[in-house]
């Protein structure tokens, strides 16, 4: 078991024929992901990477049976691409694109929420994220596949390369990962920590969760509350940006301390009070998890 992606996932790639889309689709196919179709408006009817290309996502869903969309469409058009995927009826949209205007995402989020209220739930992950991978089964994103190992740790993260760090360390410790989810570094994201923690809590294959947060916003504080009230599995957190100055955007649009809120200290405090193990040293994430699980097993 795993969350979000499995061997059954049938992927359509939006922005399939572009440079980025082509490069990363190839990598996903090599990893063994089941990409069943691509979409590029105007290129319908052609074949790319041995897969059919459609003008619209709804054709990819109806004719190729796609149920997950992976979006590589440029920032200016990405919000529309997400809405198209949701409209076409895929269950999950994973958006890799970086630099989508925040207002566009606000509109997308509202549309997805409205459709969920009327009974059609479309889950979205991203934007500005490395994607999602269930090791050994399906990779939908830009992460290096080989550092992952099938295993028992769920990882959820706001940052790309920090995720790789956590993956690498848990692989080296022999723990492996059930599923790794990059929720992205933007102020408004399709899924937040609590959405993914809820899935990991319900996944029998996940024994513990590593959560990589950063300064800005209040998603980590909300995750802390969720952990205290609704979770039985242990969570280990690292929060980046302890040494970041307030008021400056640290690369990610969402990583900014504004008006005294979203600080490293407030997040660490909330998480610790909720029983989450906060790891201070980035290099010790894997070792900390391994030690804690070993102790738990011996009790």
């Amino acid at each position: 078991m795993s969350i979000l992606l499995s061997k059954e996932s049938r992927l359509v790639v939006q922005g399939f024929t572009g440079g980025t889309g082509t490069f990363h689709s190839k990598q996903c196919i090599e990893y063994g992901s089941n990409i069943v179709a691509g979409q590029t408006p105007g290129k319908g009817g052609t074949v790319h990477l041995d897969r059919p290309v459609f003008n619209t996502v709804s054709e990819a869903v109806r004719q190729a049976g796609a149920n997950v969309s992976l979006v590589f469409v440029p920032a200016a058009f990405a919000a529309d691409a997400i809405l198209e995927a949701a409209d076409a009826g895929v269950a999950l949209v994973i958006c890799i694109t970086e630099g989508i205007p925040v207002l566009d995402m606000a509109r997308v989020k509202r549309a997805l929420d409205a459709s969920a209220r009327s009974g059609t739930r479309v889950r979205m992950v991203g934007p500005n994220c490395p994607g999602v991978i269930t090791p050994g089964e399906c990779k939908a994103g830009i992460m290096p596949g080989y550092i992952h190992k099938p295993g028992r740790i769920g990882i959820v993260s706001r940052s790309g390369t920090l995720t790789y760090e956590a993956v690498h360390q848990t692989s080296q410790q022999g723990l492996g990962q059930s599923t790794v989810v990059g929720i992205g570094g933007d102020p408004i994201a399709g899924s937040n920590f609590t959405d993914i923690l809820e899935l990991f809590e319900g996944d029998p294959a996940t024994e513990a969760v590593v959560m990589i947060g950063e300064i800005g916003g209040s998603a980590e504080e909300e995750a802390a509350r969720f952990h205290r009230e609704r979770m039985s599995k242990p969570v280990f957190a690292f929060i980046a940006g302890r040494s970041a100055p307030p008021g400056r955007r640290m690369g990610h649009a969402g990583a900014i301390i504004e008006g005294g809120s979203g600080t490293h200290a407030s997040k660490v405090k909330a998480l610790r009070e909720a029983g989450v193990t906060v790891v201070e040293n980035l290099s010790e994430i894997g070792a900390t998890v391994a030690k804690a699980l070993k102790q738990k097993a011996s009790v």
């Binding site: 570094g185 640290m250 980035l282």
Partner: peptide, 22 residues
């Protein structure tokens, strides 16, 4: 990567140094 860049700054601080930049 932005996250790893922040994480690197934090690790430098943890080791007793001060980062000159992100």
């Amino acid at each position: 990567g932005a996250g790893l860049a922040m994480g690197t700054m934090d690790t430098i601080a943890l080791a007793g140094g001060k980062p000159a930049n992100f």
